[in-house]
């Protein structure tokens, strides 16, 4: 079978976005139209006159992908082509920050589309600046660690909960470290009528600072520590959770793999900060029964 997402793109070696796009299309299938806001994935796949996409694809602006998706969906309906799936793939900045109004409106109105957020926890396309998805204490170029700072002072915005609160019939978290989980959830999301949301955790080799071969390993570790719980919500209720059980790992194992948390292991007071991150993981484990 021909890959719906093709070779020759300019993504970094070990690129999380490329994997996320590939898995998304494996789940959504060829009868899909993809909407992509501005970001790494858009830039690396479509340098005019080339494209890596073997499905119809459109990029408009940074903050409007969900609205463009709503428009595509409305057009398909009016033209009698309802069977085609509408899939928006946006980064965390395009989704949680600048595109918030657009995605909120689209979900509130109940358009039949699937929004996949590819969350690499910062603005990677512009050089690793902090976004609303950047985790607590991560060092980015606009939330750098320094003599008086441990990096980003705020925890991640809980976007899946916000989307569930919109009345979305299906909200799921997934990770590129669990491709089969992601493909399955995207497939399920695209089959369900109405606005569905899949939030995929996607470690970025360049932005997070780890070897290009470790993308999947880091992604798995986020899940195994409880920092990125994998769950599904249907009609606002958590219906399925991926258990970690006894295999749970301390957050330290996850943090030490990445340059963006390196300062926590060298700065005075770092230990207390790591403990605060452990508390975030512990709360996830408790809340979701991981």
């Amino acid at each position: 079978m021909k890959n719906l997402f093709d070779s020759g793109h300019r993504g970094c070696a070990g690129c999380c976005d490329a994997m996320a796009a590939k898995f998304t299309l494996m789940g959504a299938g060829e009868d899909s139209i993809v909407i992509n806001p501005t970001g790494c994935l858009e830039v690396m796949t479509t340098p005019f006159p080339e494209t890596s996409w073997n499905v119809p694809w459109i990029h408009s602006l940074f903050e409007n992908a969900a609205a463009v998706g709503a428009g595509v969906e409305a057009a398909l309906k009016s033209l009698g082509k309802e069977n085609t799936k509408v899939v928006v793939m946006g980064g965390d900045g395009a989704t949680l920050d600048i595109g918030m109004r657009s995605i909120s409106g689209t979900f509130e109105r109940g358009h039949d589309l699937t929004y996949v957020c590819i969350d690499n926890e910062a603005y990677m396309n512009t050089g690793v600046q902090r976004s609303g998805a950047t985790p607590y204490n991560a060092s980015t170029t606009t939330s750098p660690s320094g003599k008086v700072s441990f990096g980003n002072p705020r925890p991640k915005k809980n976007m899946p909960a916000i989307m569930a609160a919109h009345g979305a019939p299906y909200v799921a978290t997934t990770s590129i470290g669990f491709p089969k989980d992601m493909i399955k959830k995207v497939a399920k999301a695209t089959e369900i009528e109405g606005p569905t949301y899949v939030h995929a955790h996607a470690p970025c080799t360049t932005g997070w600072g780890f070897d290009t071969s470790k993308t999947v390993e880091v992604a798995k570790m986020a899940v195994q520590t409880g920092l990125w719980p994998l769950y599904e919500m249907e009609d606002g209720e958590v219906t399925k959770v991926r258990k970690i059980g006894k295999n749970v790992k301390p957050v330290e194992d996850y943090l030490k793999m990445q340059r963006r948390f390196k300062h926590l292991f060298t700065m005075e007071g770092g230990e207390e900060e790591i403990a605060k991150i452990q508390a975030i993981a512990d709360k996830n484990i408790e809340d979701f029964g991981l």
Binding site: I33, I35, I58, S60, L61, N64, A67, V68, G69, A70, G71, V72, E73, A74, A75, L76, L79, S102
Partner: peptide, 10 residues
């Protein structure tokens, strides 16, 4: 923005 998508879809 919605019309960008709609118009591109025909």
């Amino acid at each position: 923005s919605a019309l960008v998508g709609s118009s591109a879809a025909g």
